[in-house]
Design a binder for these strands. Structure first.
Lengths: 216, 216
DNA sequence: CTAAGAAGTTATCGAATGATTACATGTGCA
DNA sequence: TGCACATGTAATCATTCGATAACTTCTTAG
């Protein structure tokens, strides 16, 4: 959930502090999500993931079998978290006895909250544009359709509403991936307009997350 | 412009037919656009690009110096073509004495036409989510802002209109990258809804392009 | 206490990749 | 014609990367 920098570096070389493999697994998945998010599937190395997670490279590989399997696991987790966040927002909206539109807005806000984890949304984005890959592409398509089906059949969005929602989601992801907030900080007035329009109510969050992950 | 498959394979091993280096350069850039689009900056190899272009791998590297320079050149060309296509549409709209809204729609149609080159839009997308890369990220941000400024200050879009336009563009790019049209062909009714809503009037084009690039 | 299993590491391997060098061949111009 | 340059290739190199093997150390059940 929190930034990767919370992980104690463990001074690699000295064995990492012992941990139940289940917990270590979570650390590695978190690290992998961050690294895959920054560099994509091919650009990320198991060694970089291992360093961020504070373990040795072979440990990462052995725990997940292959880099591809690890990526698929990251992708699966990201979609799971996305959908569970959406479902929670939907449940809140229903509990509050809101109309459909208010609940739709609530899910949009929930999406914005996911921005605090750059890696999560960017790993998804990277997967989404690797559709040609026989394995990753298949998983990405299925995942995307799962989200679409949630919007349509659980949240009650019309096709047009789902399209608009997803389009703005892709736009926000792109702003995050571009690190457009850097340009905002640099004072480009266009970047200001762009971000303020594309990320309503979420700009402060994006700026802080962006600054936080700057020392990578 | 046209598909990469139009390039004669040249039966590598036998020297490629002689050509002015300027023309060969275009062939390589076309091949690079396709390969970078499919696999991204890190996933694409200079060897794969060379094979598609019908030349040897060292030739590609020597002509552009480094893979990074080649990618930057591809990125630059893609943005140039995008903007020149938009400017042409804008000029047509002005010549036809249309209102602002009709011209906006015309530019949207022009964007749809760019879908016939998977590589072009997907290379852009790959660049857009590599914002953390010091070199590629910088170029990608500048390029995106250039497009934004065109919409605002040449085409006269409001910030909100530009946001919506770009959001739908990112959505269409994502559909292309996901090869969602495959799922369409597989008969998933949700994929049908999704694509028909996201790519109005462009579905037939997408499906044909997708099918054409299937034998990769 | 001790043996067995769990948690990690070091060492290393083979394949892939970007890059360099040296060489071959075609082409246009004095 | 012949030579200089442009267009290309083959051979090869050093790194990097994912993966495997073999070894160490901690923990815990009996």
């Amino acid at each position: 959930m929190s930034s990767v920098t919370t992980t104690m570096p463990e001074k690699l070389g000295e064995p990492a502090t012992r941990m139940r493999s289940e917990d270590r697994r979570e650390l590695i998945l978190e690290a992998a999500t961050a690294v895959f998010g920054e560099r994509g599937y091919f650009g990320a190395t198991t060694d970089a993931i291992a360093r961020v997670a504070g373990v040795s490279q072979p440990y990462v590989v052995r725990m997940f079998g292959t880099k591809e399997t690890l990526f698929l696991e990251v992708l699966h987790r990201a979609l799971e978290k996305l959908l569970s966040t959406f479902r929670a927002a939907l449940a809140d909206g229903i509990a509050a006895n809101e109309g459909a539109e208010a609940t739709g807005h609530r899910i949009g806000v929930a999406y914005g909250d996911l921005l605090s984890d750059r890696g999560l949304l960017l790993s998804l984005m990277h997967a989404f544009i690797l559709g040609s890959d026989p394995v990753i592409g298949k998983a990405a398509r299925e995942g995307f359709l799962e989200v679409y089906k949630f919007l349509r059949f659980e949240a009650g969005f019309s096709p047009a509403a789902a399209d608009i929602f997803l389009a703005h989601g892709m736009m926000m992801n792109t702003m995050v991936g571009l690190r457009m907030a850097d340009e905002y900080a640099n004072g480009d007035p266009c970047a200001v307009d762009l971000l303020e329009t594309a990320m309503p109510t979420k700009l402060d969050l994006l700026l802080s997350v962006n600054a936080e992950s700057k020392h990578a």
